[in-house]
Structures are given as structure tokens and as C-alpha cells.
């Protein structure tokens, strides 16, 4: 059994200080400093994630008999890859492509739409501004799954089911992004700058392009990051909008891998020409996570500064 799970089960501090078993609970809790507690939680998180990622490099036999940790081999990764490539003639890689198309297009549309809208809401005076701001915040705090069935009814009424474009356009509507841009401009762009540009006779669009766009870097990074992650990991919308296997995104595809797996559906998997056990499933799940990690690393320096601005939404 693994080291970390021992840490879950026993109050780590009690043993390391050699406290007798009879010590009252509150005394033991007080001895357990906050840092110890934070460390234990972090170790549990790491244990879960690390064993999961490493499962792709182990054999089913090892997972079955050796517990949390066992011998790793890189050759196993090549084997996993061949199984995935052999599943329905490599459809997994099409799913990745489809996800890339809708997530990149969706996040790009979100940025292009949110920046000017957020700027206008923050810096300009016009009729209906408050109503629109209210609608933006309202749609932002509503879960995006709530409109999936209505959107399906709408898209199928115009016969666009099984197409990637409507999915990308739907992803492009990202009110949280508009709100991020709104807060960004509200806090970084002084009104005086706009006024002097107006006195110089620059048009409103010109002011946006010359003053607001160059200042947008952080807002662009934040909106793109949040939109991309939301789009890439979305499951319900692509599930109903893209019912044909060939146009599915990878998050829906993973579900197909699970239901085709010998592990979870032996009868259906009887005719399967490849192995889909936990190592292969772990490999498939980790592989489809990499784009999110890449975008995360790219956006990270903006995220730390933008954590308040972004996540707090205040």
C-alpha cells in the first residue's frame, strides 16, 4: 500500500510525536499545525493525480496485484498509443482535432466579442448600458448547461446538428469574458485619456482601436484561458450537438472509450480489436489534458495577477 494513503488514515502527527493513543482528540488537533494539515491535503491530491497519470505506464496485472505503485515502462506508453490508434481506425485523434477546432475557435470568438463589448460597457455612455451589464452578469452566473436542450432545439430547427461551426459560435458567447474585459478596462483605462482623444477628434471606434486594444493583453490572456478551458472540457453541449461519432469532441469520445472498455462493459467489448483497460483509459484522459495544461502555463503569469480581477468577479 502507498505511502500517501497511510497518511490519510492515521493522524500523521500523532505517530511522529509518539503521542500515546489516549491523548484527547482536541489536543492532537491543536498539535497538528496548519502547515501539517495543508501538507497532508496536498499529498493526498498529489497521490491521486500521480497514481492516475502513472497508471498509463503500468500493466493491468500490476494495477491488479501491486496496489498504488508498481513498475513503470515507457514501452507501455507506445502500447497504449497503438491501442488508441487502433480503436475505430484512430478516431480518438479525430476527436482531439474536433476539440481543438471548437475550443480554439470558440475562445477566439469569445475574445473578439468580449473585448469591445466589455470596453463599451465600462467606458461609454449609452442607453441600456445598465440593463446590458445586468444581463451579462446574470447570464454569467447561470450554469451553461441550462440552455443546452433549448439550443439543441434551435440548432436542429435549422438543420445544423453534427456541425462544428454552431458549437464554436455557441462557445463564443462567453459573458464571463465580457465581464472580465469590463472590469479590466474599468480599472486600467483612465477616462481622461479618452476625453483628450475625443478632443483631438478621434472617433469612438478609433479610440477603442488605438487606446483600448494595446492595453488589452492581460484581458485577452484571461478571457482566452477561461474560455478555452470551459470549451475544451465541455461535455453536455457537444454530446447533444454532435451525435455522430466522427464529429465528436474528445470529452464525449472518452465516454465512448469507457463504454467500449472491457473493464466496464465486457459484453459489448467482446468484439473489440484493441485493449481498453485502465492504462489505455488513463493514457487517453491524460493526453487530452495536455492542451489545457499548455494554455494554463501560457496564461499563468496573467492569472496570478488577474486572480482577483478574474476569479473574484468583483
Amino acid at each position: 500500500m502507498g505511502i500517501a494513503s497511510q497518511r490519510i488514515e492515521r493522524p500523521a502527527h500523532a505517530r511522529s510525536t509518539g503521542a500515546p493513543a489516549r491523548t484527547p482528540l482536541y489536543v492532537r488537533l491543536r498539535r497538528m499545525t496548519p502547515m501539517t494539515f495543508l501538507t497532508i491535503v496536498a499529498l493526498v491530491y498529489l497521490f491521486v493525480m500521480v497514481t492516475f497519470v502513472l497508471a498509463s505506464m503500468r500493466s493491468e496485472q500490476s494495477l491488479l496485484h501491486e496496489g498504488a505503485f508498481g513498475p513503470l515502462s515507457l514501452a507501455r506508453l507506445r502500447f497504449d498509443w497503438r491501442q488508441l490508434a487502433g480503436f475505430s481506425s484512430g478516431i480518438y485523434f479525430h476527436w482531439l482535432e474536433n476539440s481543438a477546432v471548437v475550443a480554439f475557435a470558440g475562445a477566439a470568438i469569445a475574445v473578439l466579442v468580449a473585448l469591445p463589448a466589455g470596453y463599451a460597457l465600462a467606458m461609454l455612455h449609452f442607453r441600456g448600458r445598465r440593463v446590458l451589464l445586468f444581463l451579462t452578469i446574470l447570464t454569467m452566473v447561470m450554469p451553461n448547461t441550462v440552455l443546452v436542450i433549448p439550443l439543441f432545439l434551435e440548432v436542429s430547427a435549422v438543420h445544423q446538428i453534427d456541425r462544428l461551426l454552431p458549437v464554436a459560435v455557441i462557445f463564443g458567447f462567453f459573458p464571463f469574458g465580457t465581464y472580465l474585459a469590463f472590469v479590466h478596462y474599468k480599472t486600467t483605462l483612465p477616462f481622461e485619456l479618452l476625453e483628450s482623444a475625443r478632443i483631438d477628434g478621434v472617433s469612438e471606434i478609433g479610440i477603442f482601436l488605438r487606446l483600448a486594444v494595446p492595453l488589452a493583453k492581460q484581458a485577452v490572456a484571461l478571457v482566452f484561458f477561461f474560455a478555452f478551458v470551459a470549451d475544451w472540457t465541455n461535455y453536455f453541449l457537444p454530446l447533444v450537438m454532435l451525435p455522430s461519432s466522427a464529429v465528436q469532441t474528445v470529452s464525449v469520445g472518452l465516454q465512448e472509450l469507457i463504454t467500449s472498455s472491457q473493464l466496464f462493459n465486457p459484453s459489448a467489448a467482446a468484439g473489440l480489436n484493441v485493449q481498453l483497460y485502465m492504462p489505455e483509459l488513463s493514457f487517453a484522459a491524460v493526453l487530452q489534458m495536455l492542451p489545457v495544461l499548455v494554455v494554463f502555463v501560457g496564461a499563468q503569469r496573467y492569472l496570478t495577477r488577474g486572480a482577483m480581477l478574474g476569479a473574484v468577479k468583483g
Partner: peptide
């Protein structure tokens, strides 16, 4: 208002 509308 006009500028805002275009951007929106």
C-alpha cells in the same frame, strides 16, 4: 451611443 452600439 453610436460608438458603443458598433462595438457591442
Amino acid at each position: 451611443g453610436r460608438g458603443g452600439l458598433t462595438l457591442l
